[in-house]
Design a protein around this nucleic acid. Structure first.
Length: 283
DNA sequence: CATTTCACCTGGTGGC
DNA sequence: TGCCACCAGGTGAAAT
């Protein structure tokens, strides 16, 4: 479900609600699929640690953790992290902060009981999400392989696609090139830049690449401002929907008139993913 | 190596 | 109402 703007919204919301809290109890209610680190090890490692900060890297949510037994840091200060809990939401994952007596939703795989009486819950019907624990004493901190779309400059952006023959749409989705772009924002940024999704990535002109980077940054920032896109069931850390789906120009608008020229939006398949574009505005 | 396809899961929707 | 095909915000392994 979530791409960069949705993950950013969730990470920020979780951070505000859990920063400085201690993880007092851990329940992992599923023992297959979502655990990149074995469930028992995660449960053992998480218990007693303080949540220092929560932030986004690519599509990953990174929870910075203090040492077990460390003093709760309070809401403002954040000490040096000793470990990380890394959450990837896959297609349908949700990370929620709620009251401990809130009804337990189906497919709740993890519950962290926090000091101050709230719970952090991981819910994921399709189980494409992943939970990982990292001890920073023995492993490096999490780093997404791809570049951050919000901060990369035009030169680096152009270099990502040089010599590549795959469709630009598929290249945008490749997380080892850019971290955080998914199906919605790939389609929306290509519309803003006036570029057909099937164009070979390495064949785009310098001017087109600049329009693409600018369009991508603008669409991601606009989506973050509106709390992300709620296409079906996406909600943020407190269960609120986003509103950027109302601003989509092409994504899931097959057959509807282009907001710019009125021509019917077309749907094709590129790289195995549903892809939407305006045949008039995108060349 | 670069690129494409498919499997992994469950649930919602729309046609008949 | 029921059944079925198709669709889905992601990724990584296997095949080409």
């Amino acid at each position: 479900m979530p791409e960069l703007p949705e993950v950013e919204t969730i990470a920020h919301g979780v951070d505000r609600r859990v920063r400085g809290r201690r993880i007092e109890q851990v329940w992992f209610t599923s023992h297959r699929q979502p655990f990149k680190t074995p469930a028992a090890k995660q449960a053992r490692e998480l218990e007693g640690r303080v949540l220092l900060a929560v932030h986004r890297t690519g599509k990953h949510i990174v929870c910075e953790l203090g040492r077990a037994g460390e003093e709760a840091a309070g809401r403002k200060r954040s000490g040096t992290a000793a470990a990380q809990w890394i959450v990837h939401l896959g297609m349908t994952g949700r990370l929620l902060v709620c009251a401990p007596d809130a009804p337990l939703e189906p497919h709740t795989h993890a519950r962290l009981g926090l000091s101050g009486g709230r719970e952090l819950r991981f819910v994921d019907p399709r189980r494409f999400g992943r939970l990982e624990f990292r001890d920073l004493g023995s492993a490096a901190g999490f780093a997404a392989p791809g570049a951050e779309p919000l901060t990369i400059d035009d030169g680096e952006f152009a270099a990502l696609f040089r010599g590549r023959r795959l469709p630009i749409k598929a290249a945008l989705l490749n997380q080892t090139l850019l971290a955080g772009v998914g199906n919605i924002y790939a389609d929306e940024s290509l519309f803003r830049a006036g570029i057909r999704p099937r164009r070979a990535a390495g064949r785009l002109t310098r001017a087109e690449l600049e329009r693409l980077r600018t369009g991508l940054v603008e669409v991601l920032q606009a989506a973050i401002r509106l709390g992300g896109s709620s296409v079906s069931d996406y909600v943020d850390a407190e269960g609120a929907r986003g509103f950027f789906q109302l601003e989509h120009c092409v994504y899931r608008r097959t057959g509807q008139p282009c907001r710019s020229c009125g021509m019917a939006i077309r749907r094709i398949v590129v790289g195995g993913r549903g892809t939407h574009y305006c045949p008039q505005c995108q060349r």
